[in-house]
Design a protein around this nucleic acid. Structure first.
Lengths: 168, 168
DNA sequence: ATAAAGTTTCAATAATTTTTGAAAGTTTAA
DNA sequence: TTAAACTTTCAAAAATTATTGAAACTTTAT
C-alpha cells in the first residue's frame, strides 16, 4: 500500500471508531490528519484534504482544542493560524479519559449517589431490586473512577507494566 | 425522593450515558427498566412504561438480546413473551466489553496491523510521523486488548482487587 | 380450517445531528 | 482610515439516525 492510501485508510478508520464512541466523525478525522502530519496545518489545508467546509473546519478545530487534543500555533511573520496535534498517544488517551470522566462519568456518579440515598420499603421487591442495581453500579463506577484517576497521573510504562504483570 | 421518581431518574441517566457512548438512548432505557424490574416484563409493559411504539420496542429488545444483555422468558400456560435482564452488573460490564471489543476494537486492530506493514522512505518526515503514530496506537490498543481479555475471564473481586492493590 | 393472540417487518415520517456557506467580525499593515 | 487577510458565527440545508404504525406473518387453541 502507498503512504497516501494508508493515510486515507487511517483517517477513515479513526473517523469510524470515533463515531462508534460518540465522537463526531469529522472531529476524529481532523484529529487523525493532524496526528500523522509532521507539520502544523492551516484551516485551508485541513478543509482541502478532508473536503469539508470552512465552518465545519473551524468548529471542529475549536472542539478539538476544547478536548485538549490539538493546539494553535503561530508562525513568525505569518497571519495564518496553524494547528498541530500532540503526538504522544499516551497523552491523548489520558486527555480523552480525563474529559470523558469529567463530562460523562462524574454526572452519572452524582445521580447514582442521589439514587443511593432513596429510602423505601425493604419488603418491596421493586425497591430491593432498584436498590441493589444502584448499589452494584455505583461500586463498579467507583472502581472505574479510581482506576482512571490512577491512569491520569501515571506514566505509560508503569501503568501497563503494573497491570500486565498482575494479569500475566 | 420517591421510588417512582428515582426509577425515572435512573432510566433517564442510563439513557443519556448510553447515547454519549454510541448506544441508542431507547436501548439503554429499556435495559435500565429491565435492570430495576424484579419481574420479567412483556413488550406491552415496556411500550407503556417508556411510551414507545411496538416496532421500536421489538427492535430494541432484539438488539438487547443480540448484545447478550437480556433474555426472553416463557411463562407456563402463557402465550406472551417476557423479557428480563441479567442483574449481575459485572456480567453486564463484561458482556458490553466483549461485544464492543469484537465489533469495534478488533476491526481497528486489523486495520492498524495492515498499516503497520506499509513501507516507505525512512527519510521522509511524512512517512516517519505516520509510522510512529501507527506504532504507538497499535501498542496502546494491544495493551487495552490484553486487559480486556483478562477482564472477560476474571472474577470481579479478583480483577478490581488486583488493580486497586497495585495502584493503591 | 379459522380466528385470536402475539410477533416481526419495513416504508414512511420524525427527530436529531452534522455540515454548509455566506455574512459579520477581527486583526494587521500600509 | 482603509482594505486585505483571515476567523468566527449561525440560520438553513443535508445527512443520518431513530421511531412509528399498520400490514404481514406466526403460533396456538378450538
Amino acid at each position: 500500500m502507498e503512504l497516501a492510501a494508508a493515510k486515507l485508510k487511517f483517517i477513515e478508520a479513526w473517523g469510524k471508531l470515533g463515531s462508534e464512541w460518540g465522537i463526531n466523525r469529522t472531529m476524529a478525522q481532523v484529529h487523525a490528519l493532524l496526528l500523522i502530519s509532521p507539520e502544523a496545518l492551516t484551516t485551508e489545508e485541513i478543509m482541502e484534504q478532508l473536503s469539508i467546509s470552512r465552518g465545519n473546519a473551524n468548529m471542529t478545530l475549536r472542539d478539538l482544542i476544547g478536548w485538549g487534543l490539538i493546539e494553535k500555533q503561530h508562525k513568525a511573520g505569518e497571519r495564518k493560524e496553524y494547528f498541530f496535534a500532540d503526538k504522544d498517544v499516551w497523552n491523548i488517551a489520558r486527555q480523552v479519559a480525563k474529559e470523558r470522566k469529567k463530562r460523562e462519568l462524574e454526572p452519572v456518579l452524582k445521580v447514582l449517589n442521589e439514587l443511593s440515598a432513596v429510602k423505601g420499603d425493604e419488603k418491596d421487591p421493586e425497591f430491593k431490586t432498584f436498590q441493589k442495581s444502584i448499589k452494584d453500579i455505583n461500586k463498579l463506577a467507583g472502581n472505574v473512577d479510581k482506576t482512571l484517576e490512577t491512569m491520569l497521573k501515571a506514566d505509560e510504562s508503569w501503568f501497563w507494566g503494573s497491570i500486565l504483570k498482575v494479569f500475566k
